[in-house]
Nucleic acid binder design. Structure first.
Lengths: 108, 108
DNA sequence: TCCTTATATAATTATTTGCTTATATATTAT
DNA sequence: ATAATATATAAGCAAATAATTATATAAGGA
């Protein structure tokens, strides 16, 4: 892996709020609205954090109606595999059966 | 490992100049004067980078006369073990037999 | 169609970070 | 003691980052 990608992924992960986002996503998909409560920051701030993680190739998204569900990509780089292993999953923030006040958070 | 330590170590590692410092130290000890040439930044800037790595518990130092030799700590956290594995050693920057214009860079 | 809801983008501001220059400290040599 | 060398710390500044508020876009329901 090149140093510039290493730097990009490290920078993306090196923020407490984004670490929490990753911790949430370890349990599965999460939608933006839920993150707002978890982090206590504004919705645009959450969107910007998610964009940074997405641009680093760490997460991906899926549109579900008006909502957007984010999740970790399956193929993590060796670097991110190691980092994600050290982040404890954070319960109670990911999409449940009534995520976004509708049902169904299963990836088709 | 706690999230705050994870964040501290990620932040310390998430900088291209500090990645290069770590890449140098993968080959062994390095002294501050050598880093200045490698990175093309001032001596105080190098000192500040090294301090950040030290405060994150990633590197340690050893005084040799007027000089200071820096090296990776032996006991890395699982997080740092994984990260360091992904950084390619950078040759030609670490202390050689005539490091700092004296001899002897062996750790006693 | 219009209104509401969920998210993204833009513009702005505040905070943090990384650099520089200047100065301080410590060790060695004269 | 004084001078020279290596490194650290302090102060100041510029660039990058993370937050906010305001606005835009897109989908769903009345």
């Amino acid at each position: 892996m090149e140093n510039t990608l290493i730097e990009k992924q490290l920078k993306a992960a090196a923020d407490l709020n984004r670490i929490k986002l990753l911790a949430c996503m370890k349990n599965g998909e999460v939608c933006v609205c839920d993150f707002v409560d978890v982090l206590g920051i504004s919705q645009p701030a959450v969107s910007q954090h998610l964009r940074k993680l997405k641009e680093a190739g760490i997460i991906t998204e899926r549109k579900v109606g008006t909502w957007k569900h984010y999740r970790l990509v399956e193929d993590q780089t060796p670097l991110m595999k190691g980092i994600l292993e050290q982040i404890q999953p954070l319960k109670g923030c990911n999409c449940g059966t009534d995520c976004c006040h509708v049902g169904g958070n299963i990836i088709e």
